[in-house]
Design a protein around this nucleic acid. Structure first.
Lengths: 137, 137
DNA sequence: CTTGACCTTCACACCGGCGTCAAGCTGCAC
DNA sequence: GTGCAGCTTGACGCCGGTGTGAAGGTCAAG
């Protein structure tokens, strides 16, 4: 809780490899909290580095900021049993959603393959027709 | 080619189940061609019903309107050998893209499962702690 | 003439995480 | 004082297919 452990947004960005724009966005979305210096500058505790890391991981799973906001307190220390139970649904929902999206993409891939097959056959016919036309000409 | 075979946008929408908004959009993107009555109304040939069907199929595979524009003449009758060859790449690209997206989603799903597992373990620890706290209290 | 169904073009809204520019303040170094 | 790096908030753009609404023309039926 020492003030010395606090850093400004630029340094947090450097340490995490995340743009300042994103950090401000995470704060706006309620994912990240920052103290304020007297001049209005954001002052982040050292643990924010880890928090940002978790945010990036969760974003990378495809979860949205709304889900992550409910999920984050759960992944931190402290008596977070209740939020855990509450936000458990979000993970299950997201897993189900991912399964659905994967199925959808595989359906698309199959459809595309079928479509390509039809076109391939048609092209073969066309080539046969063209060859016959050439011979008769 | 009889004028009697032509219909206006509302009827095409009804026959295909596609909104008039989408039909106008397809025309704007160069996927669909319409004649014009003297009063400016769009007049569609009967075959447009099939064309719209193909557009929907291709859209459903995840292809964009730009790809479909190059792909459509290929799936219709006529000497479409060259466009076929040209647009073949679009299908292959899309298939590769779908494969990549599927892989990405599966990576997300796995990551989510791992994350859930970590949280589950942490929750178990928390519960153990809470139980011990209760007993000692 | 009016009503009403159908048509026209133009254009804003959406979603979501973030790039990017604008206009202005702080504070250190020279 | 001047410059510059770093900070602030605010706001537009993107991507792409489509919903939706405005403002107005066409035409047949009453």
């Amino acid at each position: 809780m020492e003030e010395r452990d606090r850093m400004r947004i630029g340094e947090l960005a450097r340490r995490t490899g995340v743009s300042t724009r994103s950090l401000r966005y995470y704060e706006q979305r309620g994912l990240l909290r920052a103290h304020r210096d007297t001049n209005g500058y954001r002052a982040y505790d050292a643990e924010c580095v880890e928090t940002v890391g978790r945010i990036r991981e969760l974003l990378a799973t495809g979860l949205g900021t709304d889900d992550i906001r409910e999920l984050l307190p759960c992944s931190q220390g402290g008596p977070a049993l209740m939020p855990c139970a509450l936000s458990w649904g979000a993970i299950e929902r997201q897993k189900a959603q991912l399964d659905a999206e994967i199925a959808e993409l595989e359906r698309r891939r199959t459809a595309l393959g079928t479509y390509a097959q039809i076109m391939r056959e048609r092209r073969t016919q066309d080539e046969a027709l063209a060859a016959r036309a050439l011979r008769s000409a």
